[in-house]
């Protein structure tokens, strides 16, 4: 991971999904992998103070460019979303773990909720380029919260779900998943905690079941990318800690990509860390 001053190449608002920033950042683009993130400093002062983590929505090693989806949330997010072509951007990355597609995988199922599309899009692009069969299930509140399908590689099959039924299947990504589980031999997912928890419940059911269930192995082996309020992103502050089967894990270091089976949920949220003593 490195510190690099990137330069904004272009910005574009994609409906209600957020602002898509293309940033020239050769050092980070060369090192980045799908699922990893970059910690962006909102300005050069200390107010707002904290950097913001964004998963790569695109990694172009040849051009030395990365792509980020920035939701204008809070003062820092707004500042970053307001950048324009030519503006410098203080970047720290790539950080965290990345998705790993197995050598044997020929049918890759990707599930994305909301801005969780970012690492799924990178995986889709890379896997399609490598000649694998890719199906991407992407969901959002409405059609305005989806990544434009025409901007996915032609080889990627996609399924869309919207909660208001404005595009594709009315419902959530997990409603569309069962059909594809038997098709796939690997599953990767990214999205808000309630979505990941729902995928986790599917996994739990599959794990408990004694009968033969289609896609059982795929669920058991699934990888997910999670998010948590983050401080340093260097592993020192322990703000972004979540509970896993193996103890506390820092989302910025041991994550954001984790084995679904390792992550502990409570309802639709990450399990409560520690105890108040």
């Amino acid at each position: 991971m490195i510190l690099e001053t990137g330069r904004v190449v272009s910005t574009e608002t994609v409906a209600d999904l957020g602002t898509v920033l293309v940033v020239s950042s050769p050092g980070i683009a060369t090192r980045a992998h799908a699922g990893q993130f970059v910690h962006v400093r909102p300005g050069d002062r200390f107010d707002p103070l904290l950097r913001r983590p964004y998963s790569f929505n695109g990694i172009d090693r040849k051009r030395g460019e990365i792509e980020l989806i920035v939701k204008p949330l809070g003062e820092g997010g707004e500042w970053i979303a307001e950048r324009r072509g030519g503006d410098p951007l203080d970047l720290l990355g790539p950080l965290g773990t990345s998705f790993v597609v197995h050598r044997a995988t020929t049918h890759l199922l990707l599930v994305a909720g909301g801005t969780g599309i970012a690492p799924m899009k990178v995986l889709a692009e890379q896997a399609a380029a490598a000649g694998r069969n890719v199906t991407l299930i992407m969901g959002g509140r409405s059609i305005h919260h989806l990544w434009p399908a025409h901007r996915l590689p032609p080889a990627v099959e996609y399924v869309t779900t919207t909660e208001d039924g404005s595009f594709g299947i009315r419902g959530r990504v997990t409603d569309a998943m069962p059909e594809y589980l038997s098709w796939a031999d690997q599953l990767c997912a990214c999205g808000p905690w309630p979505m990941l928890a729902a995928v986790g419940r599917m996994r739990d059911e599959a794990a408990r079941s004694t009968s033969v269930i289609a896609g059982r192995d795929v669920l058991l082996d699934a990888q997910i990318a999670v998010e948590q309020h983050m401080g340093c992103a260097m592993g020192v502050c322990r703000a972004c800690v979540i509970v896993t089967a193996h103890g506390n894990a820092r989302v910025c270091r041991e994550g954001p990509v984790l084995s679904l089976g390792d992550v502990r949920f409570e309802g639709g949220e990450p399990a409560t860390v520690g105890v108040i003593t």
Binding site: H33, R61, P94, T97, S98, V100, V101, Q126, A127, A130
Partner: peptide, 20 residues
């Protein structure tokens, strides 16, 4: 194997490993 390896980058670790 990381797919990125296919376009010339190095193979990275599996999910729980150190990323870089």
């Amino acid at each position: 194997v990381d797919l990125a390896a296919l376009d010339g980058a190095s193979v990275v670790e599996a999910a729980m490993g150190e990323p870089d």
